[in-house]
Amino acid sequence: MDKILVGLKRVVDYNVRVRVRSDGSGVETDGVKMSINPFDEIALEEALRIKERGDANEVIVVSIGSGDSQQQLRTGLAMGADRAILVETSDRVDALTGARIFHKLIDRENPDLVILGKQAIDDDNSQTGQMLAAIWERPQATFASTLVIDGSKATVTREVDVGLEIIEIDLPAVVTVDLRMNDPRYVKLPDIMKAKKKPLEQIPLAELNIEKAVAISQVKFEPPTERAKGVMVEDVAGLVATLKDKGLI
């Protein structure tokens, strides 16, 4: 195949203990470490492996967001992507509008495969890939743990509630990846230097003429209710007694 398109979302790093802003307007992001959404990193790693096996010619990383997302795209280029596209907007982009943006880029780039993370760890929506597949009228293979390309087809193993589901899809298609697909590579310093010379195209969102979807509005953020403080028991006898007290055994 020729091209693989990969989405990279800038999110609060997964190691950060997220705190809700006191005014309830969102979560604290000032001075907080930002990274590529971990699932997207796995998506990129998979695309790079497909290319390195000789099954694809070019890997293009795409992000939607403010100019800050260039950092994540540069990291993606350092990992090995060939070029990057940033669709620039300072507004929050809802999932359907995001899918429409990808659809527009698909019209332009004609990729054979779009690989995305199965969800972003900030809003935990798990929607964009499925929505893109719907409006593109192409197959979707969500929650994928293995992806085998065979010419114009792909065989995908999906992690589902009852176990594993294996499906075959015709390309082009959208695949969203789960954690066990691969372990993303570490970026080496020379690659970071090389990445600076790779093309990163910035497109203002307005230039794409996307019909914006009506967003679900986020009215208020609050911290989750804390669980009541528990008790420590000394030994198994204490544990069994406490469970009996609670009527659990």
């Binding site: 997220v18 809700v20 979560v27 760890i121 935990d124 953020f221 989750p224």
Partner: peptide, 10 residues
């Protein structure tokens, strides 16, 4: 959202 570390009213 955020792995349950925040609850949002939508």
């Amino acid at each position: 959202v955020y792995a349950g570390n925040a609850i949002v009213t939508v």
